[in-house]
Design a protein around this nucleic acid. Structure first.
Lengths: 203, 203
DNA sequence: TTTAGTCACCGACTGTAGTCTTTAATGAAA
DNA sequence: TTTCATTAAAGACTACAGTCGGTGACTAAA
C-alpha cells in the first residue's frame, strides 16, 4: 500500500509545498488577499501544479478544516463517561467552539461556509458520515436510553437539530466583523435552550 | 421631495431597466449563469451604468430580497391579536418560509447568504432595524408580559435566538441541492423546540 | 536496454467581476 | 443666453480564478 514511485513521492512533496505555502499566506494576509498566482510564485510551483492537486483555491482551506475531525475523535477519548448526555453535548460544544475560534479562525470558517453554499462543491458540512455526527448521535442515543431526552423524536432527528444549531451559531459568527459576538457563549446559550426543549420532563 | 430633474428621472429609468433585466435573466438562467456583460447588453445599457447604480452583481439581487420587509409589514396587519405569542411566531415562520420558498426562491437566498458572509458588504441580515426584528421583538415582549415566556432572558436576547434559528434553517436549506429538505417543516420544527425551551412553565 | 505511454507540471490563455478614464448631456448661475 | 460644473453613462482596461494544450521526465513492459 505504501509503494510509491519516485514520481508520486515528488508529486506529494509538491502538493505539500503548495498546501503549506497557502496556509502560511492565508494566515498572514487573509484568504481573500492571497492570489493563486502568489501561492504558486512563493511556493516555486505553477498554476498547473496547483490545479492538479486542488480543485480550487477554496479546497486548500477545506483540507485544513478537515483536521477538525481528528479533533473530535481525540475529544471522545477524553470524554468522561459518567456525566449526563446534556453535559456531554455542552462540553463538546464548548471545546469545539474554542478550537474553531482559536485554532482554525474566522477567516477559515468564513471560507468554508461561503463555499459550502455553492451547489457544485462537496457537501462536506452536511455529510452524515463525519465523526462529528457520529459523536453527537451516540451521546443522544445514550441520553434517550437513560430517559434524559424525549423519545418522541428520533435520535437522527435530534442529532440533526443539534448540528444545525451549531451551524447557525457559526454562520452568525461569520456575519459579525467585530468581536461583539462571543462564539463560545452564544453557541452554549443556543444549545442549552435546545436541550431544554428536548428534556423528557417537559410534557 | 418629488422634484426630480429630467436627468434624475432618466437615471432612475436606467436603473429600473437594469434591475428588471437582471431579475428576468436570473430567473431564467440562475444567478451564476448570468454575466454582467449579458445584463448590460440585453438591457441596452453599459458596465458604467450598471456600476453607477449597483455596487455589485449581488446587490441587484439584494434589492429584490428587500421586498421581504414589506411582506412582514403586510403580515402584521393581518395577524390576529388574540392568539398566543408562540402561535404568532409559528404562524409568522410558516408564512415567511412559504414566501421565501415560493416567491423569492432558493437561488436568491443562496446569493444573499453567500454575500452576507463577505465582511465588505452591508450587514443586512443582522441589521436590527429590519421590520422582521421589530415584529418578532413585539411578539416576544407580549409573550413575556402575559407570562407565556420565561422572563429570565431579555426580549432582545430571545428575538436574537429566534432569528438566528431561522437563519440556521435557511442556511441549511441552501446546503441541500435536491428537494429532500422541506424548508417550511424544518423551520417549524426548530422553532417549536426553541419555544419549548422558552416556556415559563419549565423551572 | 529500448521504447511506448503516462502524468506531473508548465504557463499562455479565457471568462468574468469590477475599475478607471473619458465624454457629453444636463442644469444652475451669471 | 452663455458659461461652467456636475454626473450618468460608455467602454477600454485590470485583476484574478480557473482551463487547456503541450512537454519532458519517469515508469513499466518487451
Amino acid at each position: 500500500m505504501e509503494k510509491l514511485t519516485m514520481r508520486q513521492q515528488k508529486a506529494l512533496k509538491t502538493k505539500q509545498k503548495i498546501l503549506d505555502t497557502s496556509l502560511y499566506l492565508f494566515g498572514r494576509k487573509g484568504f481573500n488577499n492571497v492570489t493563486v498566482d502568489e501561492i504558486v510564485q512563493v511556493s516555486g510551483t505553477s498554476k498547473g501544479a496547483f490545479y492538479t492537486h486542488f480543485k480550487s483555491k477554496h479546497e486548500v482551506f477545506l483540507e485544513k478544516f478537515k483536521e477538525i475531525d481528528n479533533f473530535y475523535l481525540d475529544f471522545m477519548k477524553k470524554m468522561p463517561e459518567h456525566i449526563d448526555a446534556s453535559e456531554q453535548i455542552l462540553k463538546l460544544t464548548e471545546t469545539q467552539m474554542k478550537y474553531l475560534r482559536d485554532y482554525l479562525g474566522k477567516d477559515l470558517i468564513r471560507t468554508i461556509y461561503t463555499n459550502a453554499i455553492d451547489p457544485n462543491t462537496s457537501q462536506f458540512l452536511i455529510n452524515e458520515s463525519r465523526p462529528y455526527f457520529n459523536i453527537v448521535h451516540k451521546i443522544v442515543e445514550k441520553g434517550q436510553e437513560n430517559g434524559e431526552f424525549k423519545n418522541t423524536i428520533s435520535p437522527d432527528r435530534i442529532t440533526n437539530l443539534v448540528t444545525r444549531n451549531i451551524r447557525g451559531s457559526l454562520y452568525d459568527w461569520c456575519l459579525y466583523e467585530d468581536e461583539k459576538y462571543d462564539l463560545v457563549q452564544e453557541s452554549l446559550d443556543v444549545i442549552k435552550l435546545l436541550l431544554e426543549g428536548l428534556k423528557a420532563t417537559n410534557s
